[in-house]
Structures are given as structure tokens and as C-alpha cells.
Amino acid sequence: MSTAHEPDRVEIRLRGHLDERWSSWFDGLTVELEADGVTLLRGRVADQSALHGLLARLRDLGIPLISVAVVPVPSQQSRTRGTQP
């Protein structure tokens, strides 16, 4: 995860369908329902501590977590990353 100010995109999969009303509870992440009762939360989080806050809120809801993926947003810095040792 980059430490720059660029927010990261996260994709969090949960077991059980969540109502769309939870979107604002989870910092505006979109709530998408997938097959087999899986919920996908998707969107941007400001930084690592925002992500941990989000995970704590999921924990407090008791909803089972399936996966958490962080997808760095391409930025100029990250495009030049390949040239670094």
C-alpha cells in the first residue's frame, strides 16, 4: 500500500448480503451483492488507519470477513516505482 496521499481502492468481501443502507456507515463504500450471499464493499479509503477503522467496524458488526484486497491507484509515483532498486 502506498504511503503517499493518494487514497487506495479496497475490495472487501463479506459473507451475507448487506443492505445498501450500510454504504454511509462504511465511509461511502459501495455495497454490491454477489451470488452465494457474498457482499462486496468497494471504494476508496484515505489511508491505512481508515482501513483499520473500517475493519474494526466490520468486526463490531460480527459479519464474517472473506477477503480484503487493496488495489493501489495508479499514480505518477507508482508508475516510476519499477525503476527503483
Partner: peptide, 8 residues
């Protein structure tokens, strides 16, 4: 028969 999160 519902797939929603149980508490929800």
C-alpha cells in the same frame, strides 16, 4: 431462504 446478513 434469504441470503442477507443475519443480524441485518
Amino acid at each position: 431462504g434469504d441470503a442477507r446478513f443475519v443480524v441485518d
